[in-house]
Design a protein around this nucleic acid. Structure first.
Length: 594
RNA sequence: GGGGCUGUAGCUCAGUUGGUUCAGAGUACCUGACUGUCGAUCAGGGGGUCGCGGGUUCAAGUCCCGUCAGCCCCGCCA
């Protein structure tokens, strides 16, 4: 486009053209997705965030537009002015939403030329992820990526609208706050004006939202950025976004109802799926025992079953010795698992160690009713029969066993369960959405090394009323008003009813070894606020990134974040983190020690 | 902090027990031809520090050690 020429006005997005627009004058703008130059006639597929439309440059129609079209290359940004016309029967392209029509152009303006992209926007194969991250602006042009950004926008908008209708106010809290010594490692920000002092970036707005309750806000929410300087995972970034919610004068039951309403609303709007009402609930204890996890994936069975008493009657010493030492033996019945290949079965043992177990034994109940197992010689027929009964075995099933002390066995079998599900192809490509509340978490957990009690969630979790009297006698038995939202094996949110009574708060602090001075230093303003009249309150924080992952079926959190970081916390697009000028450091009273 | 996987043209990959068919394919890119394609087609062309460093060897893309980067997991993430 010459510098003088005026930019024409865009009349429609590329992906919007349909038969009904035939005959209309139009102007489209976008990126050259591809071009096909036949020497005479030239076709250009023009792309914007809505899709593709075919532009036709015909030299007999307009030689000047054709000459411009001849220069055009992939990813150049162009405007095309012309007229919508129907395609002839044999040139209709059913693969395009706009395939019934095309735009015959009489004016092409080249708005920007572009270098050849490092990888094609319509790549058939997946590119190396580090390449995608380095060239994220190209990667995001891909329709799938733009679609994820759009979906995320719509979910957040939908959540805002829903919560607003329910009487929640969206309130922002500061990003520059105090370091809180508990929980995750803080990101620190040096203060220029206060030498040697630091802000911390919030791990969550937890204390602030509770303070807002003391202020009478009553119902609060925020799309809150949360920053934690911890190692990354496929579903964890150093910064992520939560729908942070807090409610005054609400019981656990009311919080759960409200959050369920929100989640149902989101799934309805985003996927057209009706989720059950109410969501199923499971206690933490049951989840750990039956699924070996506090976030069970309920899309398949493979429940963990207790077989200690049965296998105690066998001669298999790995089992009997474990039992003699007070350990447990539990099993998973893999329905139809008898058809697992030899190598899959041989792999169970090394895989089990990889998953943190001592090992994994198996017994196959063949389709013809006979038994097959390396351990067969240790199991009398009647023990096998009792096993079959206990596990609900049918011909063709595979029993997989784990043996260890109870504490180590549960999480190991939980991981083994997921591995077996994968081997059996169980979660597969199903569209099933299985939401679940895990409730009745313990308030305290014991540090393995020091033996000290520490809060499982955070120090403000309200114990269940029936546990209050005996709290000090057996902290491990104290159940909290604590709940996690789990969908398809992913923890989407975690919350609790908070302590608003300073006396109870003191007792909890005492159990986790926080004295008055320390409590005051760490949580000063919140405790002060609570002395001046705090309502009972509780809330939850829902991970938006993980929620979007579920909604779009992404395997990695990076797929639902525009500019994510790598597993080592690097941003490959902007090359962060990076060094800074010496002068900057000096101003901040910072010296780098090698 | 620990364990595992990956790294060869711009991109996606092949490359056997180390050896003269070991530096390749497809695609992209450049040039030319072509007026109905839509993965256009046809002809021609350019393009490589085999992640990096060291070692073994007559000889290393291939074997060994180290290192860097990306991914997955454990620890960690109230």
């Amino acid at each position: 486009m010459s510098a003088q020429a005026e930019l024409p006005r865009r009349s429609k997005y590329c992906g919007e053209f349909r038969e009904e627009h035939v005959g209309q004058e139009c102007c489209v703008m976008g990126w050259v997705h591809s071009y096909r130059d036949h020497g005479g006639i030239i076709f250009i597929d023009l792309r914007d965030r809505t899709g593709l439309v075919q532009i036709v440059a015909d030299p007999s129609n307009d030689p000047d537009a054709h000459a411009k079209a001849e220069r055009v290359r992939s990813e150049w940004v162009v405007a095309a002015v012309g007229r919508v016309r129907p395609r002839s029967e044999e040139t209709i392209n059913p693969k395009l939403d706009t395939g019934q029509v095309e735009i015959i152009t009489d004016r092409i303006e080249i708005l920007t030329e572009a270098e050849t992209p490092p990888f094609p926007v319509d790549a058939a194969e997946e590119m190396d992820e580090s390449l995608r991250l380095k060239w994220r602006f190209i990667d995001l042009r891909r329709p799938q990526m733009l679609e994820r950004l759009r979906k995320r926008h719509e979910v957040v908008l939908s959540a805002r609208n829903y919560l607003s209708e329910q009487g929640f106010w969206e309130i922002e809290t500061p990003m520059l706050i105090n370091s809180s010594p508990e929980g995750a490692r803080d990101f620190l920000v040096p203060s220029r004006m206060a030498p040697g002092h630091f802000y911390a970036l919030p791990q969550s707005p937890q204390l602030l939202k509770q303070t807002l309750m003391a202020s009478g806000v009553d119902r609060y929410f925020q799309m809150a950025r949360c920053l934690r300087d911890e190692d990354l995972r496929a579903d964890r970034q150093p910064e992520h976004t939560q729908i942070d919610i807090e409610m005054s004068f609400a019981t656990q039951e009311q919080v759960l109802e409200t959050v369920e309403g929100l989640i149902r609303h989101i799934y309805q709007e985003a996927k057209g799926i009706e989720l059950p009402e109410p969501f199923p609930r499971m206690t933490y204890a049951e989840a750990m025992l039956t699924y070996g996890s506090d976030k069970p994936d309920l899309r398949f069975g493979l429940e963990i079953q207790e077989v200690t008493d049965v296998v105690a009657k066998s001669d298999f010493r790995v089992f009997t010795e474990t039992i003699d030492k007070g350990g447990r033996v539990r099993a998973i019945n893999v329905k139809g698992g008898a058809k697992f290949s030899r190598s899959q079965l041989d792999n169970l043992q090394p895989k089990a160690r990889e998953l943190g177990g001592k090992g994994a034994a198996y017994i196959i109940y063949e389709p013809d009713g006979t038994w097959r197992s390396p351990l067969l010689k240790y199991f009398p027929e009647e023990v096998l029969e009792e096993l079959r009964e206990t596990l609900g075995g049918e011909p063709g099933d595979l029993f997989v066993f784990g043996a260890d002390d109870a504490k180590a066995l549960a999480p190991f079998l939980g991981r083994l369960r997921l591995h077996l599900a994968e081997l059996a192809g169980l979660p597969g490509e199903t569209d099933a959405v299985k939401p679940l509340w895990v409730v009745d978490f313990p308030v305290f957990e014991q540090d393995e090394e020091t033996g000290n009690w520490q809060p499982m969630h955070h120090a403000f979790t309200m114990p269940r009323p029936d546990c209050l009297d005996t709290m000090e006698d057996d902290p491990g038995a104290v159940i909290g008003q604590l709940y996690d939202l789990v969908v398809n094996g992913a923890e989407l949110g975690s919350g609790s009813i908070r302590i608003h009574d300073p006396a109870i708060q003191q007792r909890v602090f005492k159990i986790v070894g926080i004295d008055e001075e320390e409590a005051d230093r760490k949580f000063s303003y919140l405790l002060r606020a609570f002395r001046y009249g705090a309502p009972p309150h509780g809330g939850i924080a829902l991970g938006i990134d993980r929620l979007i992952m579920q909604l779009v079926g992404a395997k990695s959190i990076r797929e639902v974040i525009a500019f994510p970081k790598t597993a080592t916390g690097a941003d490959l697009l902007m090359d962060a983190p990076g060094p800074v000028d010496e002068a900057q450091l000096e101003e901040l009273h910072i010296r780098v020690v090698e």
